[in-house]
């Protein structure tokens, strides 16, 4: 599959602050790619480099095989972008801004524009100053989604949307993906990425710590099992790979590493299983492990924990939303 975005070892400094420190990002055509990380991880900086708004200090980056800094204008014919913090002109209406941005991308499909306005329940006659954060975001989303661009770059696009509008947004991105468009979506909201993305790159402190499809990432981690059995499940705690076992009579709850799932289940069935639920690892858990921030959990033996930095209060707060 042809590569749309190919960035290796991206570095960017702002004065003494190191915003990016060897970030890698590979996005293939037609894929919905999630760029996941807490505030200040370097997601927006990465996106602004991809847009040619910032020049990377180190590393190599191409978008559609071209240099985004040198060929920004040509590349932008194929992009649509929604910034994380949408700022509108106070004296222009939302409708005017949508037409303006659409016009700059070479025209806008009026039918699709009207349909999106309706779906997002956006009043296009209000002026920029009077829109709420969510509505400003909708203005940018409608402008981006109504375009015919091959690549949608969305920087925390749902941060101001209510759950209803988030659902509309999810549908719209799914439709865009179905049309074969490529989507790069940055987020610190795990459920959103989990719902939408084929592949994920997890960023921390300006560096990609993990990248892969959700399936690839999941097999590295644990499954949560809840069961009730005929006989008390004594001895389950000795099975390798089982963690955080809590048993209350015949009810049991534990986490098990993916590679030891088979053994644990064999042992469990020997007690006579009455009910069983298994939950796949949520991206939340993956994410927590990368930031060492699982609530009250011992994660030091996590299979994918490559980093040993201590978490800061900030990352904890972000990761737990």
């Amino acid at each position: 599959m042809p590569t749309v975005i190919d960035a290796t070892g991206l570095g960017k400094r702002f004065g003494r602050t190191r915003a990016l420190d060897g970030l890698d990002l590979h996005v293939d055509t037609g894929e919905v790619h999630g760029l996941l990380g807490p505030n200040g991880a370097g997601k927006s900086t990465t996106i602004r480099i991809l847009l040619g708004l910032l020049k990377a200090d180190a590393g190599a980056v191409t978008v559609f095989g071209r240099d985004p800094w040198a060929d920004a204008v040509d590349l932008h014919r194929r992009f649509a972008y929604v910034p994380g913090d949408v700022n509108l002109w106070p004296n222009l209406t939302g409708g005017e801004v949508i037409d303006l941005l659409g016009g700059l991308r070479g025209g806008i499909d009026s039918r699709r524009r009207a349909e999106l306005l309706k779906r997002f329940a956006l009043d296009p006659t209000k002026r920029g100053r009077t829109y709420s954060k969510g509505n400003r975001q909708k203005v940018a989303l409608v402008a981006a989604l109504a375009s015919d661009s091959e690549l949608l770059i969305l920087d925390e696009p749902t941060s101001g949307l209510d759950p209803l509008m988030e659902a509309v947004f999810t549908d719209c991105v799914a439709e865009a993906a179905a049309q074969g468009r490529t989507v790069l979506l940055s987020s610190h909201i795990l459920a959103e990425v989990e719902k939408l993305c084929d592949r994920v790159s997890i960023v921390r402190d300006g560096r990609t710590v993990q990248s892969g499809s959700l399936t690839e990432l999941r097999h590295l981690t644990r499954v949560t099992i809840e069961a009730s059995t005929h006989r008390p499940p004594a001895g389950l705690g000795t099975v390798p790979g089982v963690h955080d076992l809590t048993a209350d009579g015949t009810s049991v709850r534990f986490d098990v590493d993916g590679e030891h799932l088979d053994e644990a289940l064999r042992q469990l069935t020997s007690y006579g299983v009455q009910t069983l639920t298994s939950a796949p690892p949520s991206l939340e858990e993956l994410f927590m492990r990368h930031y060492d921030a699982a609530p009250g959990d011992d994660t030091t033996d996590s299979a994918i924990d490559h980093t040993a930095d201590t978490p800061t209060a900030d990352t904890t707060a972000d990761a737990t939303r």
């Binding site: 708004l53 920004a72 014919r77 992009f79 910034p83």
Partner: peptide, 15 residues
Amino acid sequence: SAGRVEPLLATPVSR
């Protein structure tokens, strides 16, 4: 500085 240039320059408008 108000961040209103970013969406414009993300379209095929050259600086």
